[in-house]
Design a protein around this nucleic acid. Structure first.
Length: 1044
RNA sequence: GCGGGUGUGGCGAAAUUGGCAGACGCGUCAGACUUAGGAUCUGAUGCCGAAAGGCGUGGGGGUUCGAGUCCCUUCAUCCGCACCA
């Protein structure tokens, strides 16, 4: 019987479905284990080979744990709300629900073909009312909670109201937007509306006017992690800053807990670092500077309180609220102009021009509270309103940005920290500031002689003593903007009465997303939900028209899997206490600052209110690497570069030395260049510094016997006719005809494509992407390519020749992200059709370590396929009949088996999935060589292979005569005695260099071993004429003899 | 600039505690079987060398009987963050 994967896989997938093989229930007799994949957004493109990588790993782990006797929860669902379906709806009018449903079905079909062991009865979809009921419910709980800094947990707003009515803001230590103080009487005199407005300052979900990232193209705001370099992550549209009323989550209240929690989870350190960075805790001091002749104090935050005596000016952000109050009359105009200019710059410009110094003097001075010095107050956009207080004390001697600013505007620089004691404190010739937090204080009164660390503490103490400020911790983390001006998301369970928001009663949930007839914003810029008819409560109050962002539904989904059909709670207590938290979470590292931080916050809140019994949602996490695609390119001749090439021809014919320097990136200290002269081409790559470049240059010039100058590209310098040629080249570049190069810009070139290895490729560019299916082993199917791009009909191709002299067109290639637009997507379905799911599963694991990014390359899959068939053949005789013998296994057979038992278990536990595949191959090779067909070996082997290749394992398991599923078996026990040897083959080294092997009994004592080794005939050659200094014998490892 | 990772054959990679570097697989070469081969099987395959032998884990240095692994230094490269005070 041949290995017919197609029928086998179909048969068992059906069997598992029919028998509910992967259904899981609470079973208190078994230890639980929760393995979770990050659920996918079901995009229209379907799965590509990168998606299943993590899913396969988690499936193997889940199946392995099941064999080891755990009750494994392994669910899957869909992050079904999202922008693409809505964009598609705007374009085509198709309801996002329809698109999403279709995509989900496609995903499900693809997932099923790979043979995952998900319990589909537990599937969740974030867009399903029975699911988002609980997203809305959680939002209401957040709305009704505040954060108590003292207890370090969320508490009901009701308690806060009680506190206000008895004590006002006295003894209040809570997370809030602004520091406000009022008495109990004042509170009690306020109206309901004033109460509601004030409480917004404390709620964990609150409404506020905020600067947001507004993306006009998408018509919505975006969270910080949805914006990269001033462009939207999805779509790449420009993003501007804009003030809008938005819902926010007070995630900053949890900064410290989010930070501390990282120490308790088993995650990759780099992800933890990214999160620590994102939270950005920094400890320092906040202090007030008095403004001269005005009754105004400006608060600044600094981590370098030690440098207070080095302050020479002060800088405010252009958005700072006090600017109008402090600016002097004669500077008013300049300041206004600068502030306008700064405001109108896009985020992108601002980021791109980080190095450019700009600013304006306010005409006003502040007083340094420590020494009474009068310091000018400036405004500059290098100070950000969003961090700290929006104002800084500038210490140019010890901060590079302040230094650049001081030099640009000619402000004084005072050194207060020195590395060595007798440092000259004249800073006038400094080229850069001394930023390091180390050294000894000088010019600093009572701090002199202290180290920086001591001085920081001493200064904070002094600041607090004088009452001009206090020690303070600052965070980079901002509250999460929670409103989106979109249709396809969870509606807020909020209505407005008297202009103030109120939550729905919980028994009114879910508040279902209404159907609307068009999906874009309304004419007056309101979100699409404003189009919904009757979008009001029963009492007629208008309902919120924003919807929640993508991370709302994905923040608590892992809890819902525990108890997905519970109508009375997000998760029932019994289910929560049993499943606790995710034991292994597998997904991409790109969610480090998004989903993974929101989800942790969300869970901590649910923990505070008693819904979740664990403070951290994901105990252990593995981030699978990205599978990259191999993109193929054809190169087209670039006419501009061709012209340059002609220039070069001309110069060469005239025996002139020419130099082009390319890719001159001084900032990155890397220079690639080449030099062509006198028919010689010299290439020097990766020169590490400008000095070395110049040095290399001199050598070339000497060798060539001509004068060379180092000039960036497109400028050409030579030792004769310098001006003339330079002008000609200039004209050429400007598009004018030049007599010496006549013809080149008049010749009509067809589309000319050049095979990869044909010389002179540097003059070709303009690469065109090629669909991966038209390329086999880098060789392009030209006919198909031209058919595919019919606009390129009539193109000419310059071919290479293969070893038989046949013309072939070789493509260039690059490794990049797999994406539809790059034509490099590999679809798992095709591979399943060709090789079967088991081979695909094995191969994805065999590619390399799970956490590493790697280019997808289908070449190696054949080897895995070969191995699977070899494994299959162990169970069959030469006639293809199933043939397993009940005779006892031999020593060698048991040894091969038990080596694998140990190796597989050890390696899966440490997430080394790729090495397990090798171990399988070794074992199958050995058993195959031994012609082993013993039941006592092949039966456990089928169990062991089932996590990786469940279909073939199930088939063979049943052929072995079993009625139950291989999934429910026990992982075989490792028995050490089968792998124990009584001898060991020692490598024998002389001075650390291996010379020969010697087999010795393991129970031999060291003395006897030494004698045996030295008297071995091979040893003779290495010891003769030398004296033996030392003999090192490490039992079961190595023998090393030191001779001299 | 700061933080983190990576660097080993033609390629993907392995070496878990300092102990035979390159397991396993791809590719390549040679051979067998075959009308045929994009099937199967066997053998070879780090580099130099006819061999003996020498050299080899980005470079340089160190510790050690012994270093891919530990320490110092340097280069390259990828990722994340960034006028964060």
């Amino acid at each position: 019987m041949d290995y017919n994967f197609e029928s086998i896989e179909k048969k068992w997938q059906q069997y598992w479905r029919d028998n509910g093989t992967y259904k899981v229930e609470i079973d208190k007799n078994k230890p639980k284990f929760y393995v979770l994949d990050m659920f996918p957004y079901p995009s229209g493109a379907g799965l590509h080979v990168g998606h299943p990588l993590g899913y396969i790993a988690s499936d193997i782990y889940a199946r392995y744990k099941r064999l080891k006797g755990f009750n494994v929860l392994h669910p899957m669902g869909y992050d079904a709300y999202g922008l693409p379906a809505e964009q598609y709806a705007i374009q085509t009018g198709t309801h996002p629900a329809v698109t999403t449903e279709k995509n989900i079905n496609r995903y499900r079909e693809q997932l099923d073909k790979i043979g995952f062991s998900y319990d589909w009865d537990r599937e969740v979809r974030t867009s399903d009312p029975s699911y988002y009921k609980w997203t809305q419910w959680t939002f209401i709980q957040l709305f009704n909670s505040y954060y108590c800094n003292h207890e370090k947990k969320a508490r009901p707003v009701k308690e806060l109201v009680r506190h206000f009515s008895i004590y006002g803001t006295k003894d209040l230590d809570v997370a809030c937007g602004k520091q406000i103080s009022f008495t109990a009487d004042e509170w009690n005199d306020m109206t309901e509306k004033e109460h509601q407005s004030l409480l917004m300052n404390y709620r964990l979900a609150y409404l506020a006017d905020t600067m947001v990232n507004w993306c006009p193209e998408l018509g919505t705001v975006l969270a910080n992690d949805e914006v990269s370099e001033g462009l939207s992550v999805r779509g790449g549209y420009p993003v501007i800053r804009k003030e809008m009323k938005q819902w926010l989550l007070r995630i900053t209240a949890y900064s410290d807990r989010l930070l501390e929690g990282l120490d308790t989870v088993d995650w990759n350190e780099s992800i933890k670092d990214v999160q620590r960075n994102w939270i950005g805790k920094s400890m320092g001091a906040s202090l007030f500077f008095k403004v001269e002749n005005k009754d105004i104090d400006i608060e600044v935050f600094t981590t370098r309180a030690d440098t207070l005596f080095g302050v020479t000016f002060m800088v405010l952000a252009p958005e700072h609220p006090l600017i109008n109050d402090i600016v002097s009359d004669d500077q008013k105009e300049n300041v206004e102009e600068y502030v306008m200019w700064a405001k109108n710059r896009s985020e992108r410009e601002r980021m791109a021009e980080v190095k450019k110094v700009s600013g304006v003097f306010t005409g006003t001075y502040a007083i340094n509270p420590m020494n009474g010095d009068r310091i000018p107050i400036w405004i500059a956009d290098y100070v950000l309103m969003g961090y700290g207080t929006g104002a800084i004390m500038a210490v140019p001697a010890h901060d590079s940005r302040d230094f650049a600013f001081a030099r640009h505007f000619n402000l004084p620089v005072i050194q207060v920290v020195t590395k060595d004691v007798d440092n000259n404190t004249d800073t006038s010739n400094w080229e850069e500031s001394f930023d390091a937090k180390e050294g000894v204080m000088i010019n600093s009164d009572f701090l002199n002689g202290m180290t920086v660390k001591e001085a920081i503490l001493a200064m904070i103490k002094e600041i607090e003593r004088r009452g001009i400020g206090k020690g303070k911790t600052n965070y980079r983390l901002r509250d999460a903007i929670f409103s989106r001006q979109r249709y396809w998301g969870e509606p807020f369970p909020i209505y407005y009465k008297d202009g103030m928001p109120y939550p729905f009663d919980e028994d009114k949930l879910p508040l279902e997303l209404p159907s609307i007839n068009a999906f874009k914003p309304t004419e007056n810029g309101e979100p699409p939900l404003a189009r919904a008819e009757n979008w009001v409560t029963e009492e007629g109050y208008p309902i919120e028209t924003n919807t929640m962002p993508g991370f709302a539904g994905s923040s608590g989904y892992y809890l819902r899997y525990m108890d997905p059909h519970n109508d009375n709670a997000l998760v029932g207590e019994e289910a929560d206490r049993y499943w606790q938290q995710v034991d292994l979470y597998i997904g991409g590292a790109e969610h480090a600052t998004g989903h993974l931080i929101y989800s942790r916050f969300w869970n901590k809140f649910l923990f505070d209110i008693g819904v979740s019994c664990k403070d951290e949602p994901y105990r252990k996490m593995i981030n699978q690497g990205m599978i990259q695609g191999r993109s193929n390119f054809v190169y087209r001749v670039n006419f501009e570069k061709m012209a340059e090439y002609r220039v070069w021809d001309f110069l060469k014919d005239n025996k002139l030395g020419v130099t082009f320097v390319r890719d001159f990136k001084a900032g990155r200290r890397r220079f690639d260049f080449y030099c062509q002269s006198k028919n010689i081409i010299i290439e020097i790559k990766k020169v590490s510094s400008l000095e070395k470049l110049e040095e290399a240059y001199e050598n070339i010039a000497k060798e060539l016997g001509c004068k060379l100058l180092l000039i960036p590209i497109r400028q050409v310098v030579m030792d004769e006719d310098f001006e003339v040629v330079k002008q000609k080249i200039r004209n050429l570049v400007a598009g004018k005809k030049v007599p010496a190069f006549e013809g080149i810009d008049t010749i009509e070139y067809p589309n000319l494509f050049v095979s990869k290895n044909i010389p002179g490729r540097e003059y070709y560019s303009d690469p065109i992407r090629v669909d991966i299916n038209m390329v086999h082993n880098d060789i392009l199917d030209v006919e198909e390519f031209v058919k595919w791009r019919d606009d390129l009909a009539g193109s000419e191709f310059i071919f290479e020749k293969d070893k038989d002299g046949n013309p072939i067109y070789v493509c260039g290639w690059e490794v990049e992200k797999m994406s539809k637009s790059k034509y490099n997507v590999q679809n798992p379905d095709d591979l399943v059709v060709k090789y079967g799911a088991d081979t695909l599963r094995f191969y994805e694991m065999f590619l390399g370590p799970l956490e590493q990014s790697k280019p997808w390359d289908t070449q190696g899959i054949e080897g895995v396929f070969r191995f699977i068939r070899k494994y299959w053949r162990l169970y069959f005789n030469e006639n293809g009949d199933f043939c397993v013998s009940d005779e006892p296994a031999t020593k060698e057979e048991l040894k091969a088996l038990h080596k694998l038992i140990k190796k597989e278990a050890d390696d899966i536990e440490r997430m080394s999935f790729n090495t397990v595949v090798s171990a399988f191959m070794i074992c199958v090779n050995e058993l195959s060589d031994l012609k082993c067909n013993k039941r006592s070996v092949l039966e456990p082997l089928a169990v062991m292979i089932s996590p990786y290749a469940p279909h073939i394992a199930e088939e063979l398991w049943h052929q072995l005569g079993h009625d139950d599923s291989v999934v429910n078996q026990c992982y075989p026990e490792f028995n050490e005695q089968y792998v124990i040897e009584n001898t060991f083959i020692y490598p024998v080294s002389f001075n650390g260099k291996k010379r020969f092997d010697i087999e010795l009994p393991l129970n031999m004592d060291v003395k006897a071993m030494e004698i045996a080794v030295l008297s071995a005939p091979e040893a003779e050659k290495w010891v003769s004429g030398k004296s033996i200094k030392k003999v090192i014998i490490i039992p079961k490892k190595i023998i090393n003899i030191v001779v001299a």
